[in-house]
Amino acid sequence: MTATLEQMETTTQQSASPKPRRRSISKRVSPFTYVALTLMTFISVFPFYWMYVVASNGSEEISKIPPSLTPGGNFPNVVNTITQAVPFWHAILNTAIVSTVIALCNVFFSTLAGFALAKLRVPGKRGMLLFIIGTMMLPAQLGVIFMYMVMSWLNWINDFKALVVPAIVGAFGVFWMRQIIDSQLPNELLEAARIDGASVFRIYRSIVVPTVLPAAFVLGLFSFLGTWNDYLWPSLVLNDPERFTVQVAITQLNNSYTVDYAANMGAALLGTTPLLLLFIFVGRRLVAGVMEGAVKG
């Protein structure tokens, strides 16, 4: 895979002079490939464009045949409608804070547990790992009724603790970090540190963390995205508009009898834009992370 990545980079950098390759399975790229990939890219991007088209035209412009396919000038009004119906900017701030806290907690606890399960002589770690994988197969909705009851008994309704505490560590993160640390941290490095008399936590801090930082960053991203996009649980435990997360705020525009497509799409777009901006910077890392995890999984 590293070889492919290198090839990939040389291809993008010096596409004018492709080197001859001895790989017997790489065939000529047929034009069909580029057509198919262009079509897929269009399909991937079009819904975002469409959110803006509908939101910037208003519902009337869209409700005719043919509907207008280009953006209109109504977007500021739609944003106004949204922010008057619900404290949307506040919701974005709430979500950013909650998602960041959860992501950081996840990265910390997952790298710690992953390190122990991958490299330390912990009694029963094989069984623990199997157990962790097993818990990933439990349907999430199973415990939600009782969880909600606990949250209301603890008086955590409308409290961000109800979002953060149940999410600070998860089976996926621990398993993922174990696989990464297992494959990326050379045993020799660990041995050398042990001979130098480094404590286990010292090894974690000075060797494990720097080595797996890129992978841990991807885990943090996944966690961040997951929290940002979660709708179900926040909609149950939050009902004070000041406490809404983005997804809950979006659905508040839907409570009337007529569906205001423009406001809905505008809110969906506003709620997604921060992630799209983030994606511009970390998209490549995210793709690499998905693929790294896949080979191991």
Binding site: T41, Y231, A268, T272, F279, V290
Partner: peptide, 20 residues
């Protein structure tokens, strides 16, 4: 990277667009 973009969108936002 282009293929990955849809996955960062929330299910809710996806449902809203496709509903329209």
């Amino acid at each position: 990277t282009a293929l990955m973009i849809p996955n960062i969108t929330s299910v809710l936002a996806v449902a809203i667009v496709f509903q329209q």
